[in-house]
Amino acid sequence: MMEIFGFPIDSAGRCKHYYGENDIVSIKFTCCNRYFPCYKCHDESTDHERQLWQKEDFQEKAILCGNCFNELTIDAYIHYQQCDNCNATFNPNCAKHYSKYFEI
């Protein structure tokens, strides 16, 4: 199983910042190649600046479903908002923060 860094509060990757029912996505940060539940967890637990995933890298598997631990591509995550393995639905409000992770 992939390790989730930062401040997860449960095995699905919910964290102290975002812990709603559908907050089950962790994102691998390109700057450190580690999964974090959110950008706040990354910023509070690392000593470097966040780097955004560039559009040409959106086919990289950098999204972790907290329900089944399937890795999804960034493109699949952005366009479908659900896991292509277990069909778990992700929080649609996360789209408000895409600019913290991805070159949009």
Rank of each mutant, 00 (worst) to 15 (best):
M1A: 15
M1K: 13
M2L: 15
M2E: 15
M2F: 15
M2N: 15
E3D: 15
E3C: 09
E3I: 13
I4G: 06
I4W: 02
F5W: 11
F7V: 11
I9V: 13
I9M: 05
I9A: 15
D10K: 10
D10N: 14
D10V: 03
S11A: 12
A12H: 04
A12L: 08
G13C: 00
R14E: 06
R14D: 06
C15R: 08
K16D: 05
H17P: 01
H17N: 13
Y18I: 10
Y18N: 02
Y19M: 15
Y19C: 14
G20H: 09
E21H: 12
E21Q: 14
I24L: 13
I27G: 07
K28M: 00
C31W: 02
C31N: 07
C31Y: 01
C32M: 12
C32W: 04
C32F: 09
N33A: 09
R34A: 06
F36N: 02
F36E: 02
F36S: 02
P37A: 10
C38A: 00
Y39K: 02
K40E: 04
K40L: 15
C41V: 13
H42Y: 03
D43F: 10
D43R: 06
D43S: 11
E44N: 10
T46K: 08
H48C: 11
H48S: 07
R50C: 08
R50I: 15
R50M: 12
L52I: 13
Q54D: 10
K55P: 01
E56Q: 12
D57G: 11
Q59A: 03
Q59V: 04
E60Q: 09
K61T: 12
K61C: 14
A62L: 01
I63P: 01
C65M: 05
G66V: 01
N67C: 02
F69E: 11
F69R: 14
N70P: 04
E71H: 09
E71M: 11
L72K: 03
T73Q: 04
D75L: 05
A76Y: 07
A76W: 15
Y77T: 03
I78E: 03
H79W: 08
H79F: 10
H79Y: 08
H79K: 05
Y80G: 03
C83K: 09
C83R: 01
C83V: 01
D84K: 14
N85K: 11
N85L: 07
C86W: 14
N87I: 11
T89E: 08
F90N: 02
N91I: 03
N91E: 09
N91V: 03
N91W: 04
P92L: 05
C94F: 15
A95G: 06
A95M: 00
K96W: 12
K96I: 07
K96L: 10
Y98P: 05
Y98I: 00
S99Q: 15
S99C: 13
Y101A: 07
Y101E: 02
F102K: 08
F102A: 01
F102V: 05
E103F: 15
I104G: 00
I104W: 03
